[in-house]
């Protein structure tokens, strides 16, 4: 049960796993911008090779990364088809009703598809090789300058970490409530859409009520243990940059320069 939503993380001992979560986070963000420097086939080949190399280095195999594309497949296809049908420059290949497929349309849709795929696969490296908690820590660390303008960064980070910690607990609870309701004759996943949605009401109400009760008790427990606010605390868990983070940044920098260079081929 506990590996449904957050089970994306796959433990491992690769270099990529050992990178600081902040490094992976920053590089993922940078990649989204850097990929737009590619403007010809060599650029995309180079970028694809870089992503493939990164994936190989995680030691997890390509399959899990392709699985990661599935939830976004619809979005990718729609964007690709929009490019294909509504790009009107270039030589016309097919013309039917309001749709016109042109050479530019084909080229552009392929580019959009490849770009999309590379971005998703590269950012998936972060979620597959980093425990969710470390991602939360990385975000806290990277957002800490926002504290100056009054954003309660530490509180937000604590909230995220507690939310992550309670996901398996609430999943188990949902399962037992479902079983309890089934024993009382509620049929889940049967009938039409509205019927199905309705059948979830007897699951959601007790789940929410219990979640609120838990929150109240957790609040008491936190206060009893001396919690005041997010600012006046020391931190037990810390993120540390190591040498391999330097190597990763350097490698990415070389990749970015290389990608820029392909524009002149």
């Amino acid at each position: 049960m506990s590996n449904m939503i957050l089970g994306r993380y796959l433990p491992g001992v690769s270099w990529v796993h050992r990178l600081d979560a902040r490094t992976k986070f920053i590089l993922s963000m940078l990649f989204i911008f850097v990929i737009f420097m590619a403007n010809n086939i060599y650029g995309y080949l180079f970028a694809t090779a870089f992503v493939a190399l990164s994936i190989i280095m995680t030691g997890l195999g390509f399959k899990v990364f392709f699985n990661g594309l599935k939830p976004l497949a619809m979005l990718m296809l729609i964007t690709t088809f929009l490019q294909l049908f509504f790009m009107n420059t270039g030589t016309v290949l097919v013309h039917w009703w309001i749709f016109t497929i042109t050479t530019d349309g084909v080229i552009n849709s392929v580019i959009v598809f490849v770009r999309f795929m590379l971005i998703i696969m590269f950012t998936t490296i972060l979620t597959l090789t980093t425990p969710p908690l470390e991602v939360a820590d990385a975000m806290e660390s990277l957002m800490s300058p926002l504290r100056k303008i009054g954003v309660p960064v530490s509180e937000l980070a604590l909230m995220v970490s507690i939310a992550l910690r309670f996901v398996p607990t609430l999943m188990d609870e949902a399962q037992s409530i479902m079983n309890a309701q089934r024993a009382r004759g509620v049929a889940f996943n049967e009938g039409g859409l509205i019927q199905r949605a309705k059948s979830y009401v007897p699951l959601l109400i007790p789940l929410f009520v219990n979640a609120i009760k838990r929150a109240i008790e957790l609040g008491d427990a936190m206060e009893a243990r001396g919690y005041r606010d997010g600012e006046h605390r020391t931190k037990f868990r810390v993120l540390k940059y190591t040498k391999i983070d330097g190597v990763a940044f350097a490698a990415f920098f070389i990749f970015a320069i290389g990608l820029f260079a392909t524009r002149f081929i």
């Binding site: 908690l133 970490s161 507690i162 992550l164 910690r165 607990t169 009760k213 838990r214 008790e217 957790l218 008491d220 427990a221 936190m222 009893a224 243990r225």
Partner: peptide, 15 residues
Amino acid sequence: VGMVFQNPDNQFVGA
């Protein structure tokens, strides 16, 4: 004063 409550889950704050 340290306190241990009834429900094991609802007082476990850390990840």
